[in-house]
Write a protein that binds this DNA or RNA. Structure first.
Length: 587
DNA sequence: GCCGTTTTCGGCCCGACTGTTTTCAGTCG
């Protein structure tokens, strides 16, 4: 095909077309259909361009005949004709208006058609001149808000923060609420942070109190709060000094379960839950579940009450993304997997010491890992050609192997594995020779250079590494950095197929900036028969605790303990991987 | 535009808050 686009590029095009239809006043369900389709494409582990080529695009949820044809046009001609026509009527700056707070498609369209405003800059100028209030439905308050919003936008605007910062702030605020004068009976983190997503755009809290108004006042007085943006009897929205907005929702204790369920989301999960409930005569909101026939309202102090009433088994927050969890959790459905837990992990197979770019000695890492209850820890410093920080020469690595063997016989309380994080060079070869690699207990290979290879060359590079008999696992297999850098070009289906064939483990790197494989890729890999390992990639003793974020990704990818090899003993893990295939079977 | 325990047409989640209105539309989550 003429334009081999990535899933992200196809999704962007459909989202843009949805925005254009919305500006044009299309039925909102039609617009939502474009957004749903874009999300399914973005989350697909398989190449959607390839699916379209095979005539299989309609296997994706939310893709029907029309969208399949439009994606086909996009791939064949590089553009969707309907989008080209609409873009002539609405300049790109009009869509940009809808990104400003308080401006949606209706207002953007009115501003453009009646006042000729075609960009945020033009809007700002019109607000400064007091021209906006001449339009019906707009007043001086709106002009003031525009000036404030565009000023912030010009200085970069708020961006999403990684999960650890959001959780840290959330825990501080929850503690503040619980300690505040008027008693909060309960306060907890909800929203996307509770679902353990990668990065959050704002923080959601729920609290119960017999006097909600007093609790709202106490919230506004917490030292983390910079300014209250909105305030009502049931909700407070505020900006923190960190720049992250916080929504606090308040309810009486008897409705806490309803509120927590609602406010944990995701929006897509709730939407599907409510549609399903509605078909069976229930209306679901944060205030309760009402029966259509009798009008009876069911409220619950515990969240599970909502799910039980509607006929669902418990659904862990990490799964609430409308990715099949509702169907699986139905009382007569197939059931949800028993998700892997942090305490199932028996060893960490990726960490660094002062030998390369880590901060601690081997002994310190070993003691910290033993304190976490691990049975084994692989020391995997960077290999010879790493290029930044200290590189470990072959002679230094041989010394380190000796040192680890000595430590193992000295009774540390944990088994240390002599390992390395070996660079995969652009041609797919490794930067230690095979003899040296053969002396190691554990080899994890990864890419740290030449990220811009073509999809074909990058895939071949990784395939070569996985076919190498000494390579046990691939670390951070896609190279993405959350909110900073997308994955390098890569054929994931081939990656998973070869990993399964060769018995190479794929890592879920737990560093909160990586979480690589992603949840979608991890789920697709496991379905393809790949075994995963969840590792901290710790560069200090404290960083061993980052494992929780890798476990969160594994859980969001529907993985069970059986899908994660380092929930097994070291002996068992070896048998499950490539080493097991080159050893004679145990009699 | 999609989809089917509502099944090829007629539905598609629900409420809070704001700023405007003169009883409510628009936006947001």
């Amino acid at each position: 095909m003429a334009h081999p686009l990535t899933n992200a590029q196809i999704a962007d095009s459909l989202e843009e077309l949805g925005d254009l239809y919305e500006l044009d006043g299309a039925d909102r369900h039609r617009v939502l259909a474009y957004r749903r389709a874009a999300r399914a494409i973005r989350e697909s582990s398989a190449s959607v361009a390839a699916l379209v080529g095979e005539g299989r695009a309609r296997e994706l949820p939310g893709i029907g005949q029309t969208l399949e044809a439009k994606i086909g046009d996009l791939l064949a001609y590089g553009e969707i004709p309907a989008a080209v026509a609409l873009k002539q009527r609405y300049p790109a700056g009009v869509i940009a208006l809808t990104r400003l707070p308080g401006i949606g498609p209706k207002r953007a369209r009115a501003l453009f058609t009646d006042l000729g405003i075609d960009s945020p800059a033009a809007l700002r100028a019109a607000a400064a001149a007091g021209r906006l209030r001449t339009e019906r439905g707009f007043g001086p308050k709106f002009e003031a808000n525009v000036l404030a919003a565009t000023a912030q936008e010009l200085t970069g605007g708020p961006s999403r923060v990684l999960l650890p910062r959001a959780l840290e702030l959330g825990e501080e605020l929850v503690a503040g609420l619980l300690d505040s004068g008027p008693p909060a009976a309960n306060a907890q983190i909800a929203g996307s942070a509770r679902r353990m997503v990668e990065a959050v755009g704002d923080l959601d809290l729920v609290a119960t109190a017999d006097d909600p108004a007093a609790l709202a006042d106490a919230f506004a007085a917490l030292p983390q709060i910079e300014v209250v943006l909105q305030s009502g009897p049931a909700a407070v929205r505020a900006r923190t000094h960190m720049g992250l907005d916080v929504d606090l929702r308040l309810a009486r204790p008897a409705e806490h379960g309803n509120l927590l369920q609602h406010f944990t989301g995701s929006a897509q999960h709730n939407e599907a839950l409510r549609a399903d409930a509605r078909a069976r005569g229930y209306h679901v909101s944060e205030h309760g579940v009402s029966e259509e026939a009798s009008g009876r309202l069911h409220t619950f102090a515990e969240e599970q009450g909502v799910y039980s009433l509607l006929g669902y088994r418990p659904i862990p927050p990490e799964l609430r993304e409308n990715r099949g969890e509702l169907q699986a959790a139905r009382e007569h459905g197939p059931g949800l997997p028993e998700l892997v837990r942090e305490r199932d992990v028996r060893g960490d197979l990726h960490c660094h010491t002062v030998a390369s770019d880590g901060r601690a000695q081997i002994e310190e890492m070993a003691l910290a890992a033993a304190a976490r209850g691990y049975e084994y820890l692989a020391i995997t410093d960077h290999s010879a050609s790493h290029g930044f920080g200290k590189a470990v020469s072959p002679a230094q690595l041989r010394d380190q192997i000796e040192r680890i063997h000595r430590l193992n016989s000295s009774g540390l309380g944990i088994r240390l594995l002599a390992g390395s994080e070996v660079n995969i060079l652009p041609d797919g070869s490794l930067d230690y020779d095979d003899d040296l690699l053969g002396e190691l207990d554990w080899v994890i290979a990864s890419i740290h250079t030449s990220f811009r290879l073509s999809e074909q060359r990058m895939t071949e590079r990784l395939v070569s590494a996985m076919r190498h008999p000494a390579v046990d696992a691939i670390a951070h297999p896609t190279g993405r950095l959350i909110e900073q850098r997308p994955s390098y070009a890569l054929d994931r289906e081939t990656l998973f197929e070869v990993a399964a064939q060769t018995g190479t483990f794929l890592e879920i790197n737990a560093n909160p900036l990586r979480r690589d494989l992603s949840e979608q890729d991890a789920r697709a890999a496991a379905q393809a028969g790949v075994l995963l390992v969840v590792n901290s990639d710790a560069h200090s003793t404290e960083m061993l605790a980052l494992l929780r974020y890798g476990i969160a990704t594994a859980r969001r990818g529907w993985l069970r303990a059986a899908d994660v090899a380092n929930t097994r003993s070291w002996e068992e893990l070896q048998r499950m991987g490539k080493r097991g295939r080159r050893m004679p079977p145990a009699s």
